[in-house]
Each structure stands twice: as C-alpha cells, then as structure tokens.
Nucleic acid binder design. Structure first.
Lengths: 213, 213
DNA sequence: TCCCATCCTGACCGTATGGTCAAGATTAGA
DNA sequence: TCTAATCTTGACCATACGGTCAGGATGGGA
C-alpha cells in the first residue's frame, strides 16, 4: 500500500510552507538580485500561489530579510572550527575546507550575501556593526595569539581574514565564470579537491604556518 | 574675465552626455543592481531628463551593456603588466598592485562586474567564452613558464589566478563590510598600502616566488 | 540667411509588480 | 457535532517603471 498520506497538522503545514518559500526565495534572489526578483517567480518556484506567500511573509522585504538572516547565521557558524584548533595549520586549514564546502553546497546563499553587502547591507547593517564586528575581533585575537606563539608569520590578521573570505566565497559568487573557464562544465569532485588544496597550500605557506607534528 | 563659455559643438555634446550618462549608470547599477536600478534615478544622477537618456541609449539593457563592456576592457587591460615581467615577484606583484588600485578607484565598476557574473553573465557571456578564455590561457602559460624555470612553486595556475581576482576585487565588492569593520570609516592611504602589502606578501611567499636580485 | 540634421523634453501609454481582500476550505478542540 | 482559528486563493487595485512621441530648440553648413 503506497503510504497513507496523513494530512499535515497546522504546525507542520506552516513549517513546511515557510521552508519551501524560503528555499525558493534564496534561489530567486541569488539569480535575479533583490530588485530583479519577483514574488510571482518565487511563488512559481515554490509551487504556491502568490497570495499564499504574502500570507506567510507580509512583504517582499520581510521575506528577503529572513533569507539574509539565516545565511548570516551559517556564515558565522563555519568558524567554530577556528577556536578549538591548536594552531594555524589546523584552524585555518579547516576553516578553508568548511567555507569551500559552503560555497560548493550553498552557492545561492553566498550570492545573496554578497549582493546584500555589495549594496551596502540595507537590511543587515545592524548585524554587521554588532555581531560581525565581535566575531571578527574574536578571530583576530586567535590569530594574534598564534603569531605571538611563533606559530605563523606576523601577518595583519585583518587582511588574512579578508583573504580567506574572498578566496573561498569566490568559488560560489563567481562560480559561473569558473564554470565558463572550465569548458562550461561544473567543477568535478577532483577539481574541487584540487581547488581546496591549492588555496590551503598557498595561504598556509604564505603566512608561514608551522606544520604540525 | 570669467571664461567665455563657448557653446559646445554637436560632437562634443554627444561625447559629454554619453560620458555623463555612463558614469551615472555605473554608479546606480552598482548600488542597486540591474533590476533595482531605474532609468529615472540614473537620469537624476546624470542631471538630465529621462527622455534624454533614451535618446542616447534606446533601452535600459543597451545602457547596461555598454557599462559592462567598458568595465570588462579595464579588467583585461590591468594584465599587460603580467606579460613583460621577468618573474612572478615582479609580474604578480605588479598585477596585485594594479588590481588593488582599480578596486580603490573604481569600486562601482567592480561591483557591476561582480553582479553581472553572479547573475550568470546575461549580457557578456559571449565575451567570457572568447576573450576571457583566451586571456586566461595566455596568463596561465606565463605562470607555467615561470614554474618550469623554477621561479616559483608548481601551483595550479588556474587557482592562483582565481585567488588573485578574488582577493583584489574583494576590497571593492565588499568594501562596505571592510569599512564597517574599520569603525565605519573608509580605508586611509596607509591602510590601503598595508592591505596591498599584506596581500602581496602572503601570495608571493605562498607560491614560493623567488625574490628578484 | 535659410534649411537640415541633431538634440531636447514634458506629457503620455501599456504593462508588470507588490500588495490586498473577501470568501471558501481545512483543521483544532471543546 | 459545532465553533473558532488557521490556511488558501482568484480576482482585484494602485503604483512605478520602461519606453514613446510630437513638437520645439539649437547648431552646422551652404
């Protein structure tokens, strides 16, 4: 017997629909930008009537805000790895791996984030000024400690962080360009590994990270 | 006597107006994205009536296309430096300087370019497939030659190029984030120099570029 | 001076978009 | 079973946008 489709409860319906809408919105905002995205297209991608979107998210802005906020959470989470690491080889190496993996699996999210920041962060500026500033200072302290302990060269931690962000996110944000330069085909598993290892090798050697062990 | 304002010739009028419009368009497209930009706003920034824009550029797309094309030209030009250099220290060092300078002076152009590529290059895909592919292969050959000559480590030239693009353009595309993390103030002259030298130092050391002389 | 080509622009148009609403369907729970 | 709360949706609205156009202004060349 092919699955007794028990009707969903109200709570389940809400959860499921919000998820479907947010996923569709992320995709559409990434592909068209905030201004180019239309509620109708998001609705089509989500497979729901447009009026239903407005039932769950009153305005286009409120929908966009939720998309960006959840992306920001992911963005920060990737760095837990950073703190527990004994030194830059492990910490920064793992951070690069984690961010490259995000670029690979959630390119749409990365693009929405890039777009938001490029347009002067109209909806998450307050987060940048509080959460991001704190987060950055924390990570800078870790790097500075590694420098003091002689585990890497005396690099300006700020610019190292920028380089890490730039390089890893580039593989998502400029994925189309990279694909075009790869004969129009997406990077294969091997090519992703090669990318990761190139990035890690250049940066870790570049900051004079002492090889562990 | 305060300047006899000779009336402009037709040719001058056209040149001047097209320049004013293209400048305004670049700014507005950078700030709002293609979809978010309006002809009215571009007209206001240019200080001309909207109908006048349509006299010089028949459609929004055609205006956008010209903006992107001229940015692409600049993008490519920055790499002449590359070819004549005797080795990676000079060539890549100078390339980083040049691209950082572009990021500093023409952040709007960089953002428009990033946005175009992020949205799968709807108007310049053909350029990517021809000009950019050729250009990239040329530069990869130069890097490979340096590797063969033992002037740097055997890095995958492709990923090195991506890192150069990513890192330098990041200072324009994510300039707002960088500014926010700099107490809300733009980078000073000294800070730009520090950024350039951090980037150069990490990358040149990271690829094992043999110091010249 | 006169005529033509180019330039300029306020007023206008059709359409697409974000958002609303009222009426119906479905579930919760008393 | 009956009522209230939640969910669903087609039809509708006001606005903003890209684009058009007719008619006037301005400069070029003979």
């Amino acid at each position: 017997m092919p699955q007794t489709a028990r009707p969903l409860s109200k709570k389940e319906i809400r959860q499921e629909n919000e998820r479907v809408i947010l996923d569709a919105a992320e995709k559409v905002f990434a592909e068209a930008g905030f201004g180019g995205a239309t509620m109708q297209l998001i609705a089509d991608v989500a497979g729901l009537p447009k009026a239903n979107l407005h039932y769950y998210f009153p305005t286009k802005e409120s929908l966009y805000r939720q998309v960006v906020q959840s992306i920001f959470q992911n963005w920060l989470k990737a760095a837990d790895i950073f703190d527990d690491a004994p030194g830059p080889s492990e910490g920064i190496g793992a951070y690069i791996d984690a961010k490259m993996e995000i670029s690979r699996r959630h390119p749409a999210g990365s693009k929405v984030w890039a777009s938001e920041v490029m347009h002067r962060a109209p909806v998450i500026q307050d987060y940048l000024e509080t959460t991001l500033v704190e987060w950055t200072e924390g990570r800078m302290n870790v790097i500075q400690r590694w420098i003091n302990e002689g585990k890497m060269d005396p690099i300006d931690p700020r610019h190292l962080l920028y380089m890490l962000w730039a390089t890893t996110q580039h593989y998502a944000d400029f994925g189309h360009q990279i694909e075009t330069l790869n004969n129009g085909t997406p990077l294969s598993q091997e090519q992703w590994e090669a990318a990761k290892s190139s990035v890690k090798s250049i940066i870790l050697k570049g900051i004079g990270a002492v090889d562990p062990g």
